[in-house]
Amino acid sequence: MGAIYRREMGAFFTSGLAYVFLTVFTLLSGIFFFFGVIGSATSNMSSMFSSMFIIVLFLIPILTMKLMSEEKKNRTDQGLLTAPIGLWSIVLGKYFAALTLFVIAESVVFIYSIFIAVYGEVQWASLLGNYFAMLFLGAAFIAVGIFVSSLTENQMASAVASMLTLFVLYLFDSLASNIENETIQKAMLSLSFYSRYIEFTQGVFNLSSVVFFISAAFIFNFFTVRVLDKRRWS
């Protein structure tokens, strides 16, 4: 797992993807920080975090699009799958590499907190709550992105399909409100990534939501492992 993690981290930076990702993330969160936090003269960064949901939704597929698809296309998966390591090591190595880059990007909020500290008082409880909420959200989204990437050989297709998948997950709330059957509506709402995330930005640290995001990450990584395994049998 370590070898794959290090290779992917290296590849993020040599390919320039890491710089693009970090720049775009900083730029957009900076805009939301400027207008939502500085502009409204508040020291609470929650509004920035809630706006970032949709940004994360579109940025994470860029991070994960080539993780599995390129391996298959360039036949480098033959090197990985015939090496003496398990499928979980392959998937998790890639997963944690993407997650690390996401955490680096997200940690830019601590720079913003310096600006707040200059003019007022940082609301650490709210900031850390939001920070971890976004981390858990990213953890789940990255697993979804890697899973979609494992289904195709084309990284563009992988990116677009991941964005669509995440967008549908985002729309679960609005879709659910149009459904009359209460059980289905309840089921859909309980699977909503958005409402669970927004809850954090409103100051509620819900442990069940944490479990939800981590479970989602686990399940999608498990699906990826199954896809790799199934390919050998087909």
Binding site: A3, R6, G10, A11, T14, N74, R75, T76, G79, A83
Partner: peptide, 30 residues
């Protein structure tokens, strides 16, 4: 698999790496 060295029809090379980087990666991987 730890007993096998395999050269597939298309060598599984990461073209964005240097030869040294790649061999070190395979060294760790194995």
């Amino acid at each position: 698999k730890s007993n096998i060295g395999y050269l597939p029809e298309i060598p599984p090379l990461y073209v964005d790496m240097t030869v040294d980087g790649y061999l070190n990666f395979m060294y760790d991987l194995k």
